[in-house]
């Protein structure tokens, strides 16, 4: 059983790694700081560790998909991230791609359940 869990964990990890980037981008039309994004994603059912998200945000900024700004007006200085113009355009295109993938994947995965049911 533990062998199976291992496989599941590994495949899930790979799956999450790809989706977390789009997930994070999708929540950044309004500026958010790292931990508020962790919370937002969690509320919407997407678990992500801050240790993964923070470096990811920084990378996306370096790639030019996000912009950032330190807000020092509050007691605790926080770095806010926001989609850049490029980021918005990229995300719009990705959204279409994602919907295609999700649709096709659903078809594939449901086929599998049906076959299971027939047995």
């Amino acid at each position: 059983m533990s062998k199976i869990n291992e496989h599941v964990d590994k495949l899930l990890q790979e799956l999450r790694r790809g989706t977390i980037t789009i997930g994070a981008l999708s929540q950044l039309y309004e500026p958010q700081y790292g931990y508020s994004l962790v919370t937002t994603l969690k509320e919407k059912g997407v678990q992500v560790e801050p240790g993964t998200l923070y470096p990811l945000l920084r990378r996306l900024e370096k790639q030019g998909l996000l912009e950032s700004q330190w807000d020092t007006s509050e007691a605790r200085p926080r770095k806010y991230y926001l989609l850049s113009q490029t980021g918005k355009e990229v995300l719009d295109l990705l959204r279409v791609e994602w919907q295609n993938i999700a649709r096709s994947m659903n078809v594939l995965m449901e086929e599998e359940t049906n076959e299971d049911g027939d047995d």
Binding site: Y54, R76, K79
Partner: peptide, 10 residues
């Protein structure tokens, strides 16, 4: 600064 902020938020 970012990590410190994160720890405090957590």
């Amino acid at each position: 600064d970012e990590v410190r902020g994160l720890i405090e938020d957590m």
